[in-house]
């Protein structure tokens, strides 16, 4: 039997065009001829793939969306965002929405492929007031440029000032010159050092510093540890840290949920 005859016969079988007797004979042949059975199996897969018009349309649609995204990824994201605007919202809500849309757009555009990008999308430099003991900061405010009587706090205060002026690298250098053992509460030191290392791109060192935070900053510590782990590509460990944050109210709960849902779902299984 020629190749053409064989394929035409398989077509007839798959299309149900064979007479009863012919079909029974064909089936017997398949039972005794594994090569033919295997050929029919393959042709069946091809036949169903080509004739599955719904899947073909769906696949075509996915192809169109992928092409749209390749040509104009920003436009695609922006269009999605546009749906988010509601006429009924108040001006304040509208402003909030625009800000949220901006953040979303930013994340949609830069979050993607690499852990470093994900880190960049979520890491925001916290204000110094969230890092250093507020009592110390208020002392600075109250006293202006006057040195504090507590000489132990003075070096930390200088670091805080540099941080406030966005001189992060210098702040880190100053901080590293301080012996944390000389401080009454070194946790402030380590937390600040962790944040500054993150800003400076030194995620490994940031983790070491966060590990040394013995008291205070429970939420912030877990959040920044998770971000440091993301930056290092240690996603499973990052997930465990983020899981700590989704169970109770804290400033990073929603973001932690968002990353967990979007990034690695193994823990949800």
């Amino acid at each position: 039997m020629s190749s053409q005859e064989k394929l035409e016969r398989i077509d007839k079988f798959l299309l149900g065009e064979m007479e009863q007797e012919e079909m029974e004979e064909f089936q017997r042949e398949m039972e005794s001829n594994p090569a033919l059975a295997s050929e029919v199996k393959l042709q069946k897969v091809v036949f169903h793939s080509v004739t599955d018009k719904e899947s073909a349309r769906f696949q075509e649609l996915l192809g169109e969306i992928e092409q749209e995204r390749e040509k104009a990824p920003e436009k695609g994201a922006a269009k999605t965002i546009r749906f988010a605007f509601r006429k009924t919202v108040s001006i304040a809500a509208a402003i909030a929405l625009v800000v949220a849309a901006g953040v979303y757009l930013f994340k949609s555009q830069v979050q993607p492929a690499r852990p470093g990008s994900l880190f960049a999308a979520y890491f925001e430099i916290p204000p110094i007031e969230d890092i250093v003991d507020p009592a110390l900061i208020s002392s600075v405010r109250d006293r202006g440029e006057q040195p504090l009587p507590d000489s132990e706090s003075q070096p930390l205060l200088e670091v805080a000032k540099l941080y406030k002026n966005k001189e992060y690298h210098t702040a880190l250098e100053k901080l590293e010159a301080i012996d944390p053992g000389s401080l009454e509460n070194p946790s402030n030191y380590y937390y600040l050092a962790g944040i500054l290392c993150l800003i400076d791109g030194r995620a490994e060192e940031a983790l070491v510093n966060f590990e040394n935070v013995a008291s205070g900053f429970p939420d912030g510590r877990a959040w920044y540890q998770a971000l440091a782990l993301i930056k290092l590509g240690r996603m499973e460990e990052a997930g465990r840290k983020l899981e700590q944050l989704v169970g109770y109210a804290n400033p990073w709960r929603e973001e932690a949920e968002r990353i967990l849902e979007g990034l690695n779902y193994t823990w949800l299984q």
Binding site: R57, F58, L61, L62, I65, E66, E68, R69, G76, A77, K79, T80, F83, S108, Q111, P112, A113, R114, P115, L118, G233, M235, G262, L263, N264
Partner: peptide, 29 residues
């Protein structure tokens, strides 16, 4: 239903992280 808007949203929302996951496992983009 092959809703184009929903599918675009799925691409925007989930594809980057899934691609990132796959890349980490050593496959091409």
């Amino acid at each position: 239903e092959g809703d184009r808007d929903i599918l675009r949203h799925i691409y925007d929302e989930f594809q980057p992280n899934i691609i990132s996951f796959c890349l980490k496992k050593g496959v091409s983009e």
